[in-house]
Design a protein around this nucleic acid. Structure first.
Length: 749
DNA sequence: GGCGTAAGACTTTTT
DNA sequence: GTCTTACGCC
């Protein structure tokens, strides 16, 4: 023991529970690691410790939540263990499964060059399937169908298995669609994200020799963010860990926020049932946030039922109080926060240490505008990702076709981009031929005489055919991916098309394409042996945070989901309103409301020193100014946990039920203070369960009031909202009193 | 039969 | 406000 102490354990700064978790080595382990308790540190330390004890890195399987986390962990492990970790399998579940499938998928009817379909690709595929089945896509939205198919796959329910339990017309139709959708994917040698997981499980389940080989190899299975695993991922872990029975999972049920994507919080809560003889470790000392922030976060999360018992504590002291600010509307919120950030950054606060977190991507717009106006540098993480832009998808579709000529979705994307005089009719002709031959569109094109493909489209088709044949030859001769893309852009005329447009938009697209070329060149330098296929895979499985580089000088804007696992000195949590957090679409389901509450918890616990929350009275949605009310989660937190600050300038007033915008017609009307009449003070006493948004006393600053016992006075400050609203009154006898508005019983002047 | 313009739907979160 | 789809024109 003394040996290890002076060795690697000496280099890793760990508290006693963390150290116990690292050195325990007698079977399955679950580490409950609350926010900021050193989850990553423990996982990194565990891997480094294992390697230090002589476990070859190639016997380790480690699943992280993002590729970025995987990269960072690999670097840290290498630093601690002072050894290269090349053979270690570390990455996201999706990339690890892709890796497994690339080498073993011959067992399940795939070649190693399969395409990976993203949401847009699978939507395009489904549209085609619905058309072929003669189903009107207005009767059931493709979105919903895809969500249902994902639900099956996330639980590893194949189309055949689903058929057995389908009840009623709708379900049977769904299964029929699922069946054809799955066949079509296979025909095109493509897998969607869910397939990567499900097919990996199917492969290991049905091919015992393959399973044994990998089980044997992976002596240790390590998992980060275990609370966000879905059923398929759990099956995969159970299969892989089935032999050595050494699984090390880290997670926090309070941070489970991916239920909508199939994640099962039960996975972490029932870990002991899934992995018998588990030893549980609970990390409760928080090293990230101040006491004030932790108290606020704890107060937010206690509303959830069925949590694993834990209580975060810190030795850091209370720190600065959490601020909860009310603004007039979303523009006001953005402008005021922009100014606040600007002021703070004139001091010694680094912009890179500030994050602005929101529930939906749509909320970022106003902030971007405000920040530009204030000249605050910012980085937007996520949103419309680089690889989702039309011009980038076009480029990638061309490249994908070179790797996998059976990828019809890619073919249909680019066969007429730039325009070659080929349209729906031309595609139909080609498609029919392809069906007869049992080949893909590109294969059929290359095998057909253009003369047979319709008189009008023969020119376009023969152009396209020559283009692909030339590229395929070049690809075969080992031309670098970077050169290939350049050729694609030139030979297809794609670049010319953009260059001739002379618009700002086209210029932006050219810039993006250059960025892609650049990325390809850099990637080739870092991966000298990397194939085009490998590049495409990496690109398909890259997440938003993967491409994010934290900068010293730029404020970080991202969704709450994106912020998981990150930390910042100052955090602005914006738009804490009903309908947004919690999201309106989750109102009806208590489980989903709990997930929304966890989202608030995740957001709050990102903050190290200071947390600013805000909500607005009115918000633009669909181009209309709609009234908003503060989030139920805020209202449930004891007001003593934070400082309430009302910046609306019309304190206590509540937005009208029917927005004036409606009355005025379609045109959206901006509210000014004068638009909102300050109603007379009402004498009514309110009960606690009154809906405050309907029955609330409206006060404003400076208002004259008369109190039954204290006489006349003037309101000098207002805090809190709804039934918790407090007013500070300066009475004429010189005394100041803070009164609960609902009990003040002011007499009318 | 392709291309451009106008109404239409619509946004939760992402590998 | 933005992206997609439908229709009418060339």
């Amino acid at each position: 023991m003394i040996d290890t102490e002076s060795g690697i354990l000496g280099r890793l700064v760990l508290n006693s529970v963390q150290r116990d978790a690292v050195v325990y080595d007698s079977g399955p382990q679950l580490v409950f690691a609350g926010a900021g308790t050193g989850k990553t540190r423990v996982l990194t330390a565990k891997i480094a410790w294992l390697i230090d004890r002589g476990i070859p890195p190639l016997h380790l399987f480690a699943a992280t939540f993002t590729n970025k986390a995987a990269r960072e962990m690999r670097i840290r492990v290498e630093r601690f263990a002072c050894r290269p970790t090349g053979g270690m399998w570390i990455g996201t579940f999706h990339s690890l499964c892709a890796r497994l499938l690339r080498s073993e998928c011959r067992h399940i009817g795939y070649g190693s060059a399969f395409s990976i379909f993203d949401t847009a690709d699978r939507t395009a595929l489904l549209r085609g399937v619905l058309q072929r089945l003669g189903i009107d896509d207005r009767t059931a939205s493709p979105r919903q169908i895809l969500a249902q198919i994902s639900r099956f796959k996330n639980q590893c329910v194949s189309a055949d298995e689903a058929r057995g339990s389908a009840v009623g017309f709708c379900e049977q139709e769904l299964v029929r669609i699922y069946t054809v959708y799955q066949q079509t994917l296979c025909e095109q040698q493509a897998m969607d994200f869910d397939d990567l997981l499900m097919n990996a499980v199917v492969l290991l389940r049905e091919h015992h020799e393959v399973l044994e080989q990998y089980r044997q190899r992976f002596e240790y299975v390590l998992v980060d963010e275990y609370q966000d695993t879905n059923t398929a991922q759990r099956y995969l872990l159970q299969l892989l860990a089935g032999r050595h029975n050494r699984i090390f999972a880290v997670g926090d049920d309070d941070q489970s926020i991916y239920g909508w994507r199939g994640a099962r919080i039960e996975n972490i809560l029932m870990f002991e049932q899934h992995f018998p003889a588990t030893e549980i470790f609970t990390l409760e000392q928080n090293y990230r946030s101040t006491g004030a922030i932790l108290d606020f976060a704890n107060a937010a999360i206690v509303g959830n039922a069925g949590r694993a018992e834990k209580k975060l504590w810190t030795t850091m002291g209370k720190g600065r109080r959490v601020a909860v600010t009310r603004y007039r509307d979303d523009r006001h919120e953005a402008q005021a926060i922009g100014e606040r950030i600007k002021k703070a950054c004139n001091g010694k606060v680094r912009r890179g240490d500030i994050a602005l977190l929101f529930r939906t991507n749509a909320q970022s717009r106003v902030f971007e505008e405000a920040f530009r106006k204030e000249q605050i540098p910012y980085v937007l993480v996520g949103g419309i990702g680089f690889y989702e832009r039309a011009e980038i998808k076009d480029c990638l579709a061309y490249l994908r076709l070179l790797v996998n000529p059976r990828d019809n979705v890619s073919f249909e994307r680019v066969y007429n981009v730039p325009a070659r005089g080929l349209g729906g009719k031309a595609l139909e002709t080609l498609s029919q031929k392809a069906t007869e031959k049992g080949a893909s569109l590109l294969e059929t094109l290359c095998a057909s005489d253009p003369q047979e493909l319709g008189s009008r489209s023969k020119k376009g088709f023969s152009e396209l055919r020559e283009f692909f044949e030339l590229l395929r030859d070049e690809a075969g001769e080992g031309t670098s991916p970077h050169e290939l893309l350049k050729e694609v852009l030139q030979l297809s005329g794609y670049m010319d098309l953009l260059a001739d447009q002379h618009t700002e938009e086209a210029a932006g697209r050219i810039e993006n394409i250059n960025e892609l070329l650049n990325a390809l060149a850099i990637w080739a330098r870092e991966n000298p042996d990397g194939s085009l296929a490998a590049f495409l895979e990496e690109v398909s499985l890259a997440s938003d945070v993967d491409t994010w580089e934290q900068r010293e000088d730029a404020v970080n804007l991202m969704t709450l989901h994106c912020a998981k696992g990150l930390e910042f000195g100052r955090v602005f949590l914006v738009g804490l309103e009903e309908g947004l957090l919690p999201s309106r679409q989750n109102f009806d389901d208590e489980m989903k409301i709990e997930e929304e509450r966890r989202l608030l918890y995740v957001g709050a616990t990102r903050a190290k020193e200071q947390l600013f929350c805000s909500y607005v009275d009115r918000r633009y949605r669909f181009g209309e100014l709609l009234p908003q009310s503060p989030s139920r989660f805020l209202q449930a937190i004891d007001p003593s946990m934070y400082d309430a600050d009302d910046q609306t300038g019309n304190f206590g007033a509540v937005p009208p039920r029917e927005p004036a915008a409606r009355v005025a017609g379609r045109e959206a009307v901006r509210f000014t203070r004068a638009d909102i009449p300050v109603r007379k003070i009402r004498q009514k006493q309110f009960s606690a369960d009154d809906d405050f948004s309907q029955d609330v006393v409206e006060y404003r600053m400076g208002q004259q009031v008369r109190h039954r016992n204290y006489g006349r006075g003037r309101i000098i400050s207002i805090s809190g909202f709804g039934s918790d609203m407090k007013v500070m009154v300066l009475f004429n006898d010189g005394t100041r009193r803070k009164l609960m508005a609902k009990f003040a019983n002011f007499e009318q002047e």
